[in-house]
Design a protein around this nucleic acid. Structure first.
Lengths: 330, 330
DNA sequence: TATAGTAATGCAAACGTTTGCACACGCAAG
DNA sequence: CTTGCGTGTGCAAACGTTTGCATTACTATA
């Protein structure tokens, strides 16, 4: 139904090849015909079919992006930088979320492959690296926050967790809880490792009842608090897997009459926009979100262009102190 | 480079047509060959090229979705229901944001058209309907929250604004401010109309200095508050364009020592997840977000299948009372 | 004037599918 | 033994582009 290159060719009394060359700034064409054809094409509302073009050129200028969760602003913020880099290099984006569901992630991979995309970026992947390398069907893949994969960009979770914990210990806190994500992924295990190592370093005994599972979202934080407040000896500070969890935690604390930070300090992870604007504003570990997406996309473009020999990259997080933390009372 | 249907055909000693039929459950094929070919194809890791398929069948099973802003959870939440309906009908989604930028929205339209998508859904469009109908290049388009377009699904902004205002007036508030989005779109004008009509109805004079511009986000809310608190006579309640604005408003109020709701009540619009979990939790007008996306996608599928005669649809919002509003002190 | 070289254009093949049509085969009915 | 029909398969065209090669027309040089 749409207008094809032949329609334009016929109207311009030239061959389809000429139209194609005019539209693609091919050198072997007269400036005059080029201009004429371009104007005609525009006036006819001709838009080339990407499918046909991809088919014959055997490549596509679309990058697939799979994020774990649309509802977590962390992943959405990543999209901004990915889009910036991609657009600047004339690549399209095909974005999709797999809602933290492994099977959906795999289906997404299939659909990406059917589209013969130029490359793929996955943030928050649940698929283990083994599967990924094996499944690797000659299309480059870059992972975000999955540092064991050869082509990846991650924030240093271990360092981040240590910063948070050192800061809390420095404020005089001894009973510090950790609300996890609940899945045994790298991104989780490293935080836990940081949590433990700082406690050990300061000779603070590790109490496993202070380590409670969340779900990476607000609800998980709320549930965790109800467990923590039922403990015989309550924590004086809570370190959270991420900011969304921290918001749930603060909400539940305040609902149970526990003032933040007076009665309990809270530290998050990510530094989402809402961390600044929540009441009280949230002390957190900032992931360099923009740079994560930026570098990942650059890395993918390198891979697409040259099967380059780039390796995995680790970016440093940063402690942002705000109003949700205070010195421990004793 | 990838495996083609011919590779599979050769290995199976059949023609490409047979392979195609086996993979598509065509009736005219023996159960035996079908099974054999299917297994072989899978074991070879064959994945059909969507480009080639779309080209020859002249249709595609991908829906384009353009949302105004990834950073506003309202639009992101819409994606969930759109995806649910689309996936259930074996459609893919091509999602993109135009960051509230009109030129980016137009570029997005072009790119959608290059892909020869089956249909398009736009949420928060900045393009006026005139352009849209004219630009309509035989691909069906459904708009969300743009009720003047013939194929659209919207929440009733006017009714929502009236609910909010009636509620505030009912609590005894007389000086009620409105923080707008700052763009003269329908979605804005209707709220304003509701704001004014309720005040008029109750013989409350309309003070234009109480109507201040925001930007649809947190920052806009913050800036608006600094203008409102500098007024000789401060408002006792603030109705906000949306929840993100309301969060900015509450944050700024609390920062300036103004307690919510004791010193000032705040009402939002949307009912995002964060509205429940903010402190204090936010009284707001709930848009039926899930249903908006759901109905829009169903409508689009109808259009795709039958050039159906569906018209625009308006859904009712709902007042959700929480902790950010209180009776006026006098 | 003939010849080589260059610039602009057209021809036709190719990309990987789907699908209408023709064909071959086996079998039942006349 | 034909005829007809149904079932399974293959052939070839088509989808809308791009691009190597051939062709044409012109210009400049010898």
């Amino acid at each position: 139904m749409p207008i094809t290159i032949k329609d334009v060719a016929k109207k311009a009394n030239v061959s389809p090849s000429t139209v194609s060359r005019a539209l693609n700034d091919h050198p072997r064409i007269s400036t005059e015909t080029k201009k004429q054809v371009q104007e005609l094409a525009k006036s006819m509302g001709y838009v080339p079919s990407q499918a046909a073009r991809n088919l014959v050129t055997q490549r596509s200028a679309t990058i697939g992006v799979a994020v774990a969760d649309y509802l977590d602003p962390f992943y959405v913020s990543l999209l901004a930088s990915i889009e910036d880099v991609a657009l600047a290099n004339n690549y399209d984006l095909f974005v999709s979320s797999f809602y933290r569901d492994r099977r959906r992630e795999e289906k997404l991979f299939d659909s990406f492959y059917e589209k013969r995309l130029a490359g793929i970026i996955v943030a928050g992947s649940l698929i283990d690296e083994g599967y990924l390398s094996q499944e690797n069907r000659s299309v480059p893949v870059v992972l975000i926050n999955c540092f064991s994969y050869p082509f990846s960009v991650s924030a240093d979770k271990l360092a981040g967790a240590k910063m948070a914990m050192e800061y809390l210990v420095g404020l005089g806190h001894h009973r510090i809880a950790y609300v996890s994500q609940g899945k045994p992924l790298n991104t989780e295990l490293l935080r836990l490792q940081g949590y433990r190592s700082v406690l050990r370093k300061h000779d603070i005994p590790i109490d496993d009842s202070l380590i409670v599972p969340g779900d990476g979202g607000v609800i998980g934080g709320i549930k965790a608090v109800s467990r923590l407040l039922d403990l015989p000896e309550k924590p004086s500070a809570i370190f959270c897997f991420n900011d969304m969890t921290a918001i749930g935690v603060m909400n539940a604390l305040q609902k149970r009459g526990c003032q933040v930070p007076r009665d309990c300090s809270v530290v998050g992870f990510d530094d989402l926009e809402i961390a600044t604007y929540y009441h009280p504003s949230l002390t957190t570990i900032r992931q360099p979100i923009y740079r994560l997406g930026y570098r990942a996309t650059e890395m993918l473009l390198d891979l697409i262009r040259s099967d380059g020999e780039v390796g995995s990259e680790i970016l440093e997080p940063e402690l942002i102190v705000r109003d949700s933390t205070a010195r421990a009372q004793d």
